[in-house]
Design a protein around this nucleic acid. Structure first.
Lengths: 349, 349
DNA sequence: TTGAAAGCGGTACCAA
DNA sequence: TTGGTACCGCTTTCAA
């Protein structure tokens, strides 16, 4: 009975919660693991009767195949990653939403990572890259060399709202002509002294918006400021900027790099008795939900679409597409509301 | 030279992007894989000189350990999952943010899954459960039996904003007494006919808010409606409800199950010439960013904290804590703004 | 149609 | 301190 072969002795080293494995199923069904595996994958090289026994065993043992074992054998994770600077704010959530939706439909799980501009960001992203089949990276979350390193490892990368990196696809939204639309619209209100709020160093997007703004102001024959009024991305930053702007003499209009900034600015100005748009006009960027209720004129970006598109590009690469990198640019749209000023004909109604 | 041992012949079956393995490193450094592994883990059973050689080999080969191989051997994923009904709206993003931040700090990756109340939700969640060491589940995304099944498999689960399930921890926010605060405050404005907008069937939260609302109205000696005015969760649903409410004769105040609903309602009412709060008062729930700009009175919930707490509970379980399930209840806070009505003394200023 | 066995890339036990 | 090697759980030849 207790013949000295390994079988009787073999025992799990770590037998915590002893999960059911494919071997248990094989034994229970009286077949080999190869057959169970085939049955699992729906191969048609399994005799119906055999399949039935296997199915019964799976059912009886409540077996679930281990993703880990499967992934290791198949050499694929069936998972994609997405990296953000910060998940807060109404803005990024939309991108993730679009990304997750498409990825899920394509049968891939989604790993998210928010870098919070931590020092360890590069390291964390590299680690993440080791857990996925493809990676979407938003903005200036990691250094170019890290992106390059990941690409070189053979993990497809798609960049979102970020300057291109050799070997990686990218998706971004149009900024320059949008800035021009904003300026042109402001000109119709009769505004002449225009300021720009935001830090071009923070992101490619802001840099492009500032450049587009300057060029458009120039082209309109108006005095363009040499420098933007630098600020971060949050409502608080906007509120702080209100102080500087009032100290420096208010312009006719402040074009802000994003909505949160614009909203914080508007609120702070009004708290100080400065009326928007009567005394100063303000515009934002992104068209977050709050913008509508605050009556903020802004530029709408198709964030959800950006995420969805990134997921699709990644899927193509993972599926073996090795054509030249693509660089998509999504169009944006000016959304006019109260904050940019009343048109003369409306002024008195 | 070409002695017939396996070594010379052995070759990767699938040699796509031939990744560097620990065996390559061992060979390069002239040591065993065991030693490389030790060096990798920072074990102090490695001679400094040996370690140096290993490090050099790692450097030279640009070796990165495979997460998959490691996870399989260690029998842990070093990743947690979080399941949502829908990532849209400003609300869930905060929860994910709090969750991700803590999980990342604890060295765990985060997998997200949005169920969009798809039919396949149960299946997707089960699959996800096979890829993580612990799972946070928000609201009514999956059936109780599925949660139970996951728990039984030995994967710790923490429920968020959902009724308890045997064997799982939970975190939720306080609803009943918050509803009471809302009603009590509304009474000070002199409002008497109160309606509730939202569907208790949709979520535990709404059910509790409705119950708390009814009880409080009763207690105040006011006429409590038998039924809520049912509606979904989005601005559109609120806008649609405006029609029903106007048709049925406007109450003094509409207590809404969340902010988006309230905002949509307010906007639609005002479009029809109904003034808020003069003609009808409106309150929301969540305190999303837009609520501030719309002047919406609402109940603030610590969403980020909820996510963070869920991540910590999960970590404790994964680390072996086997005490009785915990059920945390986070306190909420009434945020009074314009939409609930003007106090008599303010009415004429 | 089926089974045996060699991986996939690590970890860790046991001996040396 | 080190090395040999048996796993972790699954997939996929190759032969039968």
């Amino acid at each position: 009975m207790d013949h000295p072969d390994g079988e009787t002795v073999k025992r799990r080293r770590t037998s915590n919660r002893a999960s059911v494995t494919i071997r248990d199923v094989a034994r229970h069904a009286g077949v080999s693991v190869a057959t169970v595996s085939r049955a699992l994958r729906g191969s048609d090289l399994v005799h119906p009767a055999t399949r039935e026994r296997v199915d019964a065993a799976i059912e009886a043992l409540r077996f679930t195949p281990s993703q880990l074992g499967r992934s290791l054998a198949e050499r694929r994770h069936a998972a994609n990653g997405i990296v953000f600077p910060d998940l807060s704010g109404p803005f990024y959530a939309e991108v993730v939403l679009g990304y997750e939706e498409v990825a899920a439909r394509l049968g891939r799980s989604v790993l998210i990572l928010s870098t919070h501009n931590r020092e360890s960001a590069d390291e964390m992203v590299l680690d993440l890259a080791g857990r996925v089949d493809g990676l979407a990276v938003f903005g200036r979350t990691v250094h170019d060399v890290v992106v390059a390193e990941i690409v070189e490892r053979g993990v497809p990368v798609v960049l979102m709202a970020r300057t291109e990196v050799r070997g990686a696809d990218s998706v971004r939204t149009e900024n320059v002509s949008a800035a021009q639309s904003v300026v042109e619209h402001l000109v119709t209100h009769g505004h002449r002294r225009m300021a720009f709020l935001g830090d071009p160093v923070d992101s490619t997007d802001v840099a492009e918006r500032w450049a587009g703004f300057r060029a458009a102001v120039d082209r309109a024959g108006l005095p363009a400021p040499d420098q933007p009024v630098t600020a971060g991305f949050k409502e608080d930053d906007g509120a702080r900027a209100a102080v500087d702007l009032r100290a420096g003499g208010l312009p006719d209009v402040v074009v802000c790099a994003n909505d949160e900034l614009a909203l914080g600015l508007m609120e702070a100005l009004e708290d100080h008795g400065v009326r928007v748009p009567d005394d100063v006009a303000v515009t934002g960027w992104d068209d977050v939900m709050a913008a509508r209720y605050a009556g903020l004129t802004t530029v709408r970006q198709p964030m959800r679409d950006m995420g969805a598109r990134a997921a699709r590009m990644l899927d193509a690469r993972i599926s073996g597409d090795s054509s030249e990198p693509r660089h998509d640019v999504l169009t944006t749209q000016l959304v006019v509301r109260r904050s940019c000023g009343l048109h003369p004909k409306e002024a008195h109604r």
